[in-house]
Design a protein around this nucleic acid. Sequence first.
DNA 1: CGGACCATGTAAGTCGTTACATGATTGC
DNA 2: GCAATCATGTAACGACTTACATGGTCCG
Lengths: 173, 173
Amino acid sequence: MNIQNVILGFLVEKPMTGYDIKQMMENSVSYFFDASYGAIYPALKRMEKDKLIEKEVVQQEGKPNKNLYVITLEGKKAFQAYMDSPLNPTLIRSDLLMRIFFGRHTNPNKIMEWLNTEKEKAQAQLDNLSLVDKKYPDMERHKKITLLYGIDEAKFTLGWIERELRRLAEEGA
Amino acid sequence: MNIQNVILGFLVEKPMTGYDIKQMMENSVSYFFDASYGAIYPALKRMEKDKLIEKEVVQQEGKPNKNLYVITLEGKKAFQAYMDSPLNPTLIRSDLLMRIFFGRHTNPNKIMEWLNTEKEKAQAQLDNLSLVDKKYPDMERHKKITLLYGIDEAKFTLGWIERELRRLAEEGA
DNA sequence: CGGACCATGTAAGTCGTTACATGATTGC
DNA sequence: GCAATCATGTAACGACTTACATGGTCCG
């Protein structure tokens, strides 16, 4: 999976601008994929050149013009090829776990700080996704599956962090 | 967190070769960080040039020579600087979730295939980590915390996958 | 005698990120 | 008046991965 596959996936569902795509990603897949504008815009250019998508300039009053991208037949085929290709392994890179792993070379307070930082993030994630879930009760089946996964995962992470914090507090006492 | 920080962390604990470091990573932090030889060896060279580590060539009989790397005082300081720097956010990139997200553009069988592929991986992860846990009962505290996290996470993933598989089977029936 | 393990390295390519650059409107 | 939102883009750089290259020992 790369940025191109993801963009194709969104454009299969409806035409969008680079800006739209970024917004979409942020409030739907951000907890398992993210991309910057610096990745999205060049990708769109490349894909247009490769005839996977077509640009349609939309004039707007009081706003800058938009480049609305529409997927082509070739683009749809490329997306299908991605969906038919072998599954790529999940990538995880956790600075928190790495630091805990080397935790004996720091003081316990720092570990608690890290855990608290991460706890807030997990809580924010949980709140945000729960809100999305409430806001769109008729969400498409598959999108809902991943959303619920995100919620479950945030709860799992939160639970783990809280248990660790409690343990560290007890040991410190 | 980058490869250099991680290498420094290992070398703080004891001198190692590039090969050792790779082995270590594979059976301790591989479920939240991984690196290839193509990343490790160049990093070691760079770090030696930067005086963070020193090379000691070890002659061996019947085996190729080893480059054993020892951390310097400067290296230890660099590691401490890393441990004192702000925590970096966890990075997750899940092809499985992305494909499920776009799952309505494929057939249900494919989704079950993906889930089964991932289930086997999670099971292998769980078995492997459980074995490590059993094998080293006196593991250093912090390393054990991350190991137990890995075990819990694998169980969580496994549970989720199994629930989804059951749901899909029921709906398909 | 073949595969697994030990051991190190480079070159080319991929795929991004960060920072910079621009500029209008809307709401507080 | 200032921040946020809308909207697009580039240049420099970073941080890898993959494939290639080499070669010895140990075990079944």
